[in-house]
Nucleic acid binder design. Structure first.
Lengths: 353, 353
DNA sequence: TTGAAAGCGCTAACAT
DNA sequence: ATGTTAGCGCTTTCAA
């Protein structure tokens, strides 16, 4: 939202160009009905005088309303997506003053059907712009096509699909975050004998795994710097607490040479719970995202570090960018907006939001 | 800037309360001339209808201009304060649309006189609000008194003076940043035999040292976790390159047991230059702030980590908060706004801004 | 193709 | 103490 308030008004322009306000307005919004001659003259005068329309007067007069739809996973308080939702809320409050409404269409991140339904409902609303967390590739492509053909701009949040014609992307550089994670996990210790990568077992196939790139970055770092270190995957089901303990007991629990554990999603607190209950204190544990439960584990020393991102700010930026685009017709400043990766430990986490 | 756009207008309120727009307006801005009875009625109706004045219509109509003055050190590109200035610029562009002007009064951060002059010039402008980096205690108190007695609100940036009646503070938690710094410096290595603290020698006395609290945090951490470690202060003059090398040669250069070096201001690049020229690669170096030259040293491996803060965002937040306060009369959301401390290493610095 | 005029919601000067 | 009215800069009919 960069438009400068300018002292030059549409009246000044009209006078200087020898036409009426109406004509100037028609030129500004190129809605035709203007002779080439007047058009050129007005354009020249606008340039000479440095006229910038007053956005607020414009909004006041037009009383136009726009709607931005967000297609975002549903979640419970404290879960990953709640931060994003918070950012969207905040943004909604701000842009409401420009006559822009923000509405969310939620979906179950483990259900293609629910994603499809969310997409359909959004398309049927004929929104001015769309923000979407593209959890399912094919359905996202369908959505993208549908929106594109209606001339509705859309942006990706958190992850992206490159060959969809998105207006902008806001998210973390995933591969690099895995690389960073490996550095932190291994930094300043003896060479780890083995690293446990705890993963969520997904029963459905066809789900796009948003952390795949992160895992790749991690593996590349390890292969390069610690080729001798063993990597063992441990699959758990987040909904089945008992089985988590079982699985971890059979793996991490048996380790004798110093426990190194990572997770690439936001659920490291599951591991922290286990370690804490078992009284394992000699571990090096690194995870992602500053969920309350993760930060608690950071503070009590069970987790060594978290790699976090301000998804709320990310969402806010996205909504703002979309609003700018809608109101000002601004071509977005940057197409791929990579958020910074924040390293959190027990000493700086208190000041993280 | 949270005000919701509301469908209820001042006309609706006037009608419902059985008075005129003028009276409603008087009540809203409590500029007297209203009978108790009308006043109460209007207030009740406002509450019932949930009326929120349309800020833009209001701004449009009143054509009022306000000025925020910033008293900030002068600096060259790439230096610490240039980030802050950037944030102020950005904020200025945004709030200009609310008819708020932002002007900067610069000063030489090593000269009390120049600070005093900046303060005086600001006071004489009779600004609507003031942002100040309180580098000199006594002069800042003078400024605070003067502003307070004129009813001009002011905020502190970067550091603060507790017993001045500031409206808000935006900055880093300095003590904690020193603690964090010590943790990073010592983390995952053998116990350091000695740590070199490189400091700027200031010839003038009476300067408030903004990094004193940070140093205290650092020392406390060391005393607690590494009581055996020696701490040696090395004073350098940033303007005298030759003497820097001399001083470092005589200290850091002679170290045999692994070199640990920190600086508490933004000039760690001076040390990095030295180490790099000398070809010392076995060092653990930690500094502050993501200046270009510091980040360069981070990337080439000379510096191990930087603790950084987004002073641009900080400044932007401050200007926004002041604007809100001026326009909406909002009591600031938080008085002490501690910015997060960002840990930068070679793997995440590319995405830092 | 163009101009004139009536607002949008609010402020402020002027009446009463 | 209160109502009336003329704008603020722009959009949008409606005529011409």
């Amino acid at each position: 939202m960069k438009a400068e308030i300018s002292k030059v008004t549409i009246n000044d322009v009209a006078k200087a160009a020898g036409v009426s306000k109406g004509t100037v307005d028609r030129v500004i919004h190129n809605r035709g009905e203007v002779s080439r001659k007047s058009r050129e003259k007005v354009l020249r005068v606008i340039d000479e005088l440095g006229f910038k329309p007053n956005l607020y007067a414009s909004l006041l007069a037009s009383q136009k309303e726009r709607t931005i739809c967000c297609i975002i996973p549903e979640c419970r308080p404290g879960e990953f997506w709640s931060m994003t939702r918070k950012g969207i809320q905040e943004a909604a409050a701000i842009v409401s003053r420009y006559g822009v409404k923000v509405v969310c269409a939620g979906f179950d991140q483990y259900s293609v059907d629910s994603f499809r339904m969310a997409c359909d409902s959004v398309v049927s609303m004929n929104p001015s712009g769309v923000l979407v967390a593209p959890m399912f590739r094919d359905e996202t492509m369908r959505l993208a096509d549908s929106l594109s053909s209606s001339g509705i701009p859309f942006m990706f949040l958190d992850s992206k699909i490159d060959d969809a014609g998105y207006l902008a992307y806001f998210g973390m550089p995933m591969y690099e975050s895995g690389y960073l994670c490996a550095d932190i996990l291994t930094g300043g210790r003896n060479i780890p004998h083995k690293v446990y990568v705890v993963r969520i077992s997904r029963d459905k196939t066809g789900l796009s795994d948003p952390t795949a790139a992160r895992r790749a970055g991690f593996m590349d770092f390890m292969a390069r710097h610690y080729p001798e270190t063993l990597i063992e995957n441990v699959f758990i089901d987040p909904k089945d607490a008992a089985s988590i303990y079982e699985r971890l007991d059979a793996t991490v629990g048996r380790e004798k040479d110093g426990r190194f554990v990572v997770m690439f999603n936001s659920r490291i607190h599951l591991v922290a719970d286990y370690l804490s209950v078992k009284g394992f204190h000699d571990c090096r544990v690194v995870g992602f995202d500053a969920l309350e439960r993760n930060v608690a584990a950071l503070k009590d020393g069970t987790v060594y570090a978290l790699i976090a991102q301000h998804t709320d700010r990310q969402a806010l930026d996205a909504v703002n960018a979309m609003t700018d685009h809608l109101l000002l017709g601004t071509p977005v400043a940057k197409r791929d907006n990579f958020i910074q990766m924040d390293i959190l430990n027990r000493y700086n986490c208190d000041y993280y939001l």
